Amino acid sequence: MEEIRIERRGSVTHVILDRPAVKNAVTLAMWRELAAIFAGFAGDQDVRGVVLRGSGKDFSVGADISEFEEIRDDRHQSAAYEVAVDACSGAIAAVGKPVVAAISGYCLGGGCHLALACDFRFGDRTATMGIPSAKLSIVYGVHSVQRLLAIAGVSNAKRVLYSADRYPADRAHSMGLIDELHENAALAAEKFLERLAANAPLSISGAKYMLNGLSMGPGALDLAAAQRLIDAASDSADFKEGRQAFAEKRPPRFRGK
């Protein structure tokens, strides 16, 4: 769709929210399309990492509130909307590749939700983060709140959700909402992912699955599925390649198999 661009740069793919005229506000159709895009990366061995960013000066001001009267007018529509939002963040969290949100300008509400679903958040000095749900009488969904809690801690999560304040880059960094600050967040994210691309994809995907599951609270991690990932890595050609490369004192050539 026209509102989302995909740029492939070697092993790293950029997913770009492309509505700069409205500060990359996310429509319901975009939530659904983003879910499909990230789900599609799962089987693509050429994609070793993903940068999620906005076009222009902003990451995203969040959900496109202008369409709420038609698509989120009552509890039933709100529930359906939350299903789409959770499916999107779930697809980002589930893809077995590292994902970095590169944040410039506004990263608010649903935009913050997208960033929290990523593995890492790199920001520049213009980054401003916040969740204004308390100014709209919206109670954030359980999965969204759990991610915020896991990343920022209970006190900061309460501050973010109770106050609806906006936090500049330095404050967001100190609260844990931003992992690293850079002059060019997108470039820093790309270089970071290029470095990770030299490591074993099965190791990264297995670690991501377990860490995300454990961070989402008791019972969220499927232990049988985690064991299958451990076993698959142990039986993989990459594991043999890693051992052989270590013995031969050379960089390993991992293929994700």
Rank of each mutant, 00 (worst) to 15 (best):
P251C: 02
G49I: 03
F254R: 14
A220D: 13
A101M: 04
I103C: 04
L149D: 01
D165G: 14
A189M: 08
H14A: 15
S104Y: 03
S89H: 01
A94C: 01
L28N: 03
Q77D: 11
L196E: 14
A197C: 07
H182R: 13
V83R: 05
G56D: 09
V142P: 05
V51F: 04
I4G: 10
A102E: 06
A91W: 01
N212E: 14
L114W: 02
L221F: 08
D222W: 11
E2I: 10
M129L: 15
R9E: 07
V47K: 02
A197K: 06
A188F: 00
A247S: 08
G217M: 04
Q45T: 10
K257F: 09
V160N: 10
F120C: 06
I178A: 00
L136I: 01
A25F: 03
E33W: 06
A185K: 01
S236K: 07
I204Q: 14
F41L: 08
F38V: 11
A102G: 04
A172D: 01
A127G: 05
F59G: 00
Y162W: 07
A220H: 15
L177H: 00
S78Q: 12
I178C: 00
G256E: 00
A134H: 02
S137T: 12
L187K: 11
A39C: 07
A93D: 04
E67N: 07
G153T: 03
R75I: 14
A197W: 02
Y106V: 01
E190D: 08
V50W: 01
A91F: 00
F120R: 04
G256Q: 01
Q146A: 13
S174C: 02
G96M: 09
G43W: 07
L211A: 13
S137M: 12
I37Q: 14
S104N: 06
R53E: 14
D64F: 04
F68Y: 12
D64T: 05
A84G: 08
I65R: 15
Y106L: 13
R48K: 15
D238P: 05
A91H: 04
L148G: 03
L193M: 10
C107M: 09
Y140D: 12
R8K: 13
G111S: 01
A207I: 06
D46A: 09
K23S: 11
A84S: 15
L161I: 12
I230R: 09
A39K: 11
A245P: 02
A164P: 03
R253W: 05
L221H: 12
H143S: 06
V139M: 11
L211S: 08
R250L: 02
K158Q: 15
A169K: 12
H14R: 15
V22T: 13
